[in-house]
Simulated scan of single mutants.
Amino acid sequence: MTDGPESQKRALRAELRERRRIRTATEREREAAAITQHLVDLASDLGSRSIAAYLSTPEEPGTRDFLSWACGQGIRVLLPVSRADGLLDWAPYDGEQEDEDLMGMPTPTTELLGPIAINDVDLILVPAASVDRSGMRLGWGRGYFDKTLGSMENCPPVYAVIFDDELVDSVPSERHDQRVDGVVTPSGIVALQP
């Protein structure tokens, strides 16, 4: 086995999955409340009227309370639905029923929009395993968000939602990996520069 970026990524992802798995329910609740407030602040500061985001799973930093808030404020929320070809479709989120896409990720049950629906949003929130201080994002290895962000002509601000210990000095990267503009963690909002 080589020690190239792909094997380094696999090892780091395994470590990060384990760290997330052993977080206590109390830690998760406290961190989710802080992240929600910071996401509200970010969306408010940017004057966001349309957001592309994702429904967090139980081990991810929580986005659900924020998405409920956004829907209640009349902010249009689009959520990703993975496709077999490696692209993402998008669906409006109404804060109600959920289903699972082909990758087992939670998705809305509303109408499916095509991949270009994301072009009309003014903030994108993405999941990440880790992000470094230059904004390089380490995803979970499927490449959906890298393909989406890499294909956008006029990309709005992109923020990854991570735990505090997942903002690091450097992450292994490859040519196709995409940077983010900042991160939202339980401690706050951090803008990042390449």
Rank of each mutant, 00 (worst) to 15 (best):
G47H: 14
T36W: 03
E174M: 14
E166V: 11
K147Q: 11
V168M: 11
D41W: 06
L149E: 04
Y93P: 01
T107I: 15
P156M: 10
A91I: 04
V171K: 09
G150Y: 06
P61W: 04
E174T: 14
P80D: 09
T148R: 09
P5Q: 03
S44H: 13
Q97E: 12
T2Y: 08
P127T: 02
P157Q: 11
G188F: 09
S50T: 11
L42W: 11
I116V: 09
E29T: 07
D94E: 08
V190Q: 14
C155R: 15
R28A: 07
R23N: 04
I22A: 06
D132T: 07
A11C: 05
D181N: 15
Y144L: 13
A128E: 04
Q8K: 10
P115W: 04
Q97W: 00
A129K: 00
L87W: 15
A32K: 05
A33K: 12
G104E: 00
E98P: 00
Q73D: 00
L67E: 03
E60G: 06
Q178C: 14
L16F: 11
E96K: 13
A14R: 15
P156S: 08
V81F: 01
F145R: 04
R20M: 04
L167Q: 14
P172Y: 11
E100V: 11
A33G: 03
T109D: 03
D3V: 01
V126C: 05
S187G: 15
D41Q: 14
G141D: 10
L113V: 00
I116W: 03
T24V: 12
H176L: 14
D146H: 07
L192C: 13
C71N: 12
T63N: 07
G4D: 15
T24M: 09
R179K: 15
G188P: 12
A14W: 01
T107L: 01
A33Y: 01
T26P: 00
L12A: 05
S7T: 13
A14C: 01
P5F: 13
G72A: 08
A33L: 14
P127L: 08
S48H: 04
D3W: 07
I75K: 11
L102S: 04
V161C: 13
L16N: 02
L46Q: 10
G182H: 13
A70R: 09
G72E: 06
P106I: 07
L12N: 03
M136Q: 09
Q73G: 00
I124W: 10
G86D: 12
R13W: 01
L113P: 00
H176C: 13
D132L: 06
V121R: 05
A84R: 13
P80G: 06
D89L: 10
F163C: 02
D85M: 06
A53H: 07
E174K: 07
S7R: 12
I116G: 00
W69N: 06
V121K: 07
D169L: 12
E59C: 02
Y144N: 09
I116Q: 12
A14F: 02
